[in-house]
Design a protein around this nucleic acid. Structure first.
Length: 502
RNA sequence: GCUGCUAUAGUGUAGGGGCCAAUCAUGUCGGCCUUUCACGCCGACGACUGGGGUUCAAAUCCCCAUAGCAGCACCA
């Protein structure tokens, strides 16, 4: 039985259930797979590196973790991973907080790794005492060669006492950057070369860390393992680029006898059409190619917010994508659909006339048009546009046409007389316009209009919009027949809008 | 090169031996509705990477191939 058959059968048998049928098939948010051992609540984390504002990649990680914290209850730790002074932008601390607020993440705790250096030092010493780490003074290149052959470097044979002494010298500033590193003792014959004796601590003397006076810093595998344990993290959802790190961190959990969290690694998400790399964005901003971190060509959250995409649309899109291990390509189309769902019921409708042609409609009566602010919500009222015949029309929509209907106004005939356009009044009849298959287009009175620029990723559109748009700053509106746009600014009577999507 | 992960319509997803000639969303196309090419409604289109096996039965389990991705940093 086909779906429509079923539906009509149901209508015969139990019409009262029909509403339920259509209801349940419509709005139902997706349920992601259950997390093992999460029944009594979870402690999860979002751990960005403060090198710039958050982008769509961060959005996936943070929203997926947020989703499970909401689902199971518990705590959500924001852990700022600022252990590499080279990759810390002091301004990013604030930007990350702003972006998190925008996303609406349910963060319950905030920790900065740069506040916890003493903890890492202490546990590093303990790890050395346990024989789980040694201080390596080999050149990194030399170590790499040995490692690939599965061979130990001489430092590996040092006694615990020797290692502790070297470690103390490291802390005392007796080494220079690059001369020494603390390695976790794993297995030099491990089939995966990525597992062999990785680094846990190193010296960074340049640049200075913006928050803390130190030169010895942990590498992420060490600080992450330590913090995941100390903060009581129960579940970790992150990208599969961390699979090897998860295995490396397991060594530290094992040395200390800690129980590791449950991990889930989702696949790589390719995002096209925007710039995502922090360095690429920074260079572009410095060279003037981009206007700032919220330039619409960037994949930052502030950039897509500027384009009128709502945080919940991003959230819905990310939950929809889920935690699958397959590599995927992020779909702007799907994001826009989620956003339209949110924005369409809210957005007021206005006319925007790009690339305008000003004409006089011969024989036109004085007329006042009333157009609904929202066609599905008459209670919102109307915009009133009065004209005596001088109007603005979108060039592309009248080219090659002999008759069009001006929406909520009247019909016009267009004749091309050499270079001159002759536009004449052609009555008020909507039926006639329909009969002649005249398109219904937007227009503006020549006397009442606001200059407006519609900025899009692939270039901007100049034109005019209704005066009422001035009151929509920061809102998303729908320019009829063009699409949704966020009114970014209204300066000195000039409107600047960012195109969101159709 | 070594190690590992993955493979369902254009995109995202469900499905983990029979209920699958495969779900839902998005998209595209057509229709209805409509003073927007919006919204809503109806319909159509469109996929189990390939090859072997196991089994009465495979999208689902196993092997191989192929492809994509990740890691092999004193980055996170």
């Amino acid at each position: 039985m086909s779906q429509s058959d079923r539906k009509s059968r149901l209508e015969e048998l139990a019409p009262e259930l029909l509403a339920e049928l259509t209801e349940t098939t419509h709005e139902r948010s997706r349920e992601l797979p259950a997390l093992e051992g999460a029944e009594n609540g979870v402690v999860m984390r979002f751990a960005p590196n403060p090198s710039g504002p958050l982008h769509l990649g961060h959005a996936r990680a943070s929203i997926l973790n947020d989703y499970y914290v909401r689902r199971y209850g518990g705590r959500y730790v924001l852990r700022i991973e600022d252990t590499d002074p080279r990759r810390v932008d002091p301004e990013a601390y604030g930007m990350v907080q702003e972006d998190i607020a925008w996303l609406g993440l349910g963060i319950t705790d905030v920790v900065y790794q740069s506040d916890r250096l003493d903890i890492y030092y202490d546990l590093c010493r303990k790890l050395i005492e346990l024989g789980g780490a040694y201080v390596c003074v080999c050149e990194s290149e030399r170590f790499r060669e040995l490692k690939l052959k599965g061979k130990a470097c001489p430092c590996r044979e040092q006694t615990v006492e020797e290692n502790l002494e070297l470690w103390q010298q490291m802390l005392d500033g007796e080494f220079y950057e690059g001369d020494v590193t603390v390695r976790v003792k794993t297995d030099l014959t491990h089939p995966d070369p990525a597992m062999r004796d990785y680094s846990a601590m190193r010296i960074v003397s340049e640049p200075l860390h913006p928050r803390v006076d130190a030169t010895v810093f942990p590498l992420m595998n060490f600080s992450v393992a330590v913090d995941d344990h100390l903060l009581g993290i129960t579940h970790v959802i992150r990208g599969k680029d961390h699979i090897a790190n998860t295995r490396r961190q397991r060594y530290i959990f094992d040395y200390f006898g800690w129980k590791p969290p449950v991990y889930r690694h989702y696949g790589r998400m390719g995002i096209s059409g925007v710039v995502l790399s922090t360095s690429g964005m920074r260079e572009g901003i410095e060279s003037g190619l981009y206007t700032g971190w919220d330039d619409i060509h960037l994949g930052t959250l502030r950039a897509i917010a500027r384009r009128g995409i709502e945080a919940d649309a991003v959230r819905n899109a990310m939950v929809d994508i889920g935690i699958g291990e397959t590599d995927i390509s992020f779909s702007w189309e799907n994001l826009y659909a989620k956003n339209k769902e949110l924005v369409d019921p809210k957005a007021n409708r206005y006319f925007f006339v790009p690339d305008p042609v000003e004409v006089t409609v011969e024989g036109a009566p004085r007329h006042e048009a009333h157009a609904a602010l929202h066609p599905n919500d008459p209670a919102r009222g109307v915009r009133t546009l009065a004209t005596a015949g001088r109007i603005l029309l979108p060039r592309a929509d009248i080219e090659g046409r002999s008759m069009v209907r001006l929406k909520d106004l009247y019909n016009i005939r267009i004749a091309q007389d050499g270079d001159v356009l002759r536009v004449t009044y052609a009555g008020d009849s909507l039926d006639e316009a329909r009969r002649e298959k005249a398109p219904i287009i937007q227009w503006l009175p020549a006397e009442t209009k606001l200059p407006c620029t519609l900025l899009r990723q692939d270039g901007s559109l100049e034109g005019f919009c209704e005066p009422l748009v001035a009151g929509e700053a920061d809102n998303v509106v729908q320019f009829e027949r063009i699409g949704f746009a966020r009114i970014d600014s209204v300066d000195g009577g000039r409107v600047s809008a960012y195109f969101a999507h159709r």
